[in-house]
Design a protein around this nucleic acid. Structure first.
Lengths: 210, 210
DNA sequence: CGTTAAACTTGAACCTGTTCAATATTTTTT
DNA sequence: AAAAAATATTGAACAGGTTCAAGTTTAACG
């Protein structure tokens, strides 16, 4: 049987995370004070800091839950990709986008991104960056599999193209969360146009001789 | 003749900016306190806030100087681009990169980017975003001119390709300043590989019939 | 010049994330 | 089950960005 202390610890940590998620979504990350979280979680301010090293650490824990989910869905999609590279890429990336506001508000994403950029060497920043790299690897893996099946010319540098595409989808996501008025539909449309432009290249290489 | 008050104002603002630039570079943005800036600029803390609404505002003022310079250089390059789209893009973007540490340290860039993301609606955030858009427009303009001269197939969506490329170069710059160990050389090499992958597409469309 | 109004400066006070010495609780030992 | 050790909790104190009421300096006017 687990000790009393162990159970209390797990329970407190859960309460702090639940209180934070609730408050961050309803009042905004910035506006929420550690004191508010402590009150709802029924612990003291000091205790919050026993479980999470900074306020940003709590936020990144929530981001990690979100990203782990889309990574898992991405694995499934990679295992049985839709027919056609254009459609497969769209499906994968749109899923990233469409899932993004399940746990986090745009304001929370902004705060999380700002944190990871400003302090890349903190545990927070490192974790955020690792999650990003795993997403990038999925996009590259999808392109590589398309090349293996002959959908993309063998001479193409799919790692570089995947890098290019991932950087762009990531930056578009930054702009999406930076603009409260921008809809998911508009974001997907922008992606779609870029995918068209990229794949136009492959198809034109295959279909339009000089 | 300018009034005494007007002269004193301009002088104080200049002193605050000079003190800030010096301190940010030597001690790091984070580490510098408004009190330190006030002391060197020979004003009080409250006066600093009369001239710049926040600490971040001072930083963005420095960023703006930096970006205006590379924008001006970009205009010159657009007027007489090097031969070959691949080389012209490389020249333009490398200039952005190579110029970037003239006034700002990596740590200052990180702080500025974090600011612009976290608070996109503040005057700071808006200004930063506008500077970004002007850089994006230069990349797109260069591609459009290449298309006008027949270097890029007329069917290609150069605005979308420029969008894609700019997003990526911007994200690579974020990663560059997020990693103190990364050199400009490594950054340019990464760019170069992406440009190869992108232009491979155009050249393969022109040279490698199906 | 003296007086009044306008503009500017100042630093003490405020706010909130974070730390840490004192206290309390749980576990282990005897 | 008492004592000792280990582990957690707590809230007051600290730090630095920001605000603002009071004071000071400059300009405008008679």
């Amino acid at each position: 049987m687990t000790g009393l202390r162990t159970r209390q610890k797990a329970d407190r940590k859960r309460r702090i995370l639940a209180a934070s998620t609730q408050l961050f979504r309803s009042s905004g990350y910035r506006h929420v004070r550690i004191e508010d979280i402590a009150e709802i979680a029924e612990v003291s301010v000091g205790t919050v800091y026993n479980y999470y090293t900074t306020k940003g650490d709590i936020l990144i824990a929530i981001v990690a839950m979100e990203v782990e989910e889309v990574l898992a869905a991405g694995e499934t999609l990679l295992a049985t990709p839709p027919a056609g590279m254009r459609e497969a890429l769209q499906a994968l990336i749109s899923h990233y986008y469409n899932h993004s506001l399940n746990y986090l508000s745009k304001e929370m994403w902004r705060a999380a991104m700002a944190l990871s950029i400003e302090a890349p060497l903190t545990p927070n920043g490192v974790l955020y960056h690792q999650l990003d790299e795993r997403l990038r690897a999925q996009v590259q893996a999808l392109l590589a599999s398309g090349q293996a099946q002959g959908e993309i010319d063998a001479q193409m540098d799919t790692d570089a193209l995947g890098d290019l595409l991932f950087n762009s989808l990531n930056m578009m996501f930054v702009e999406f969360v930076s603009d409260d008025a921008m809809t998911l539909k508009a974001l997907n449309a922008r992606l779609s146009r870029q995918l068209d432009a990229m794949t136009q290249v492959w198809t034109s290489a295959a279909q339009v001789p000089a």
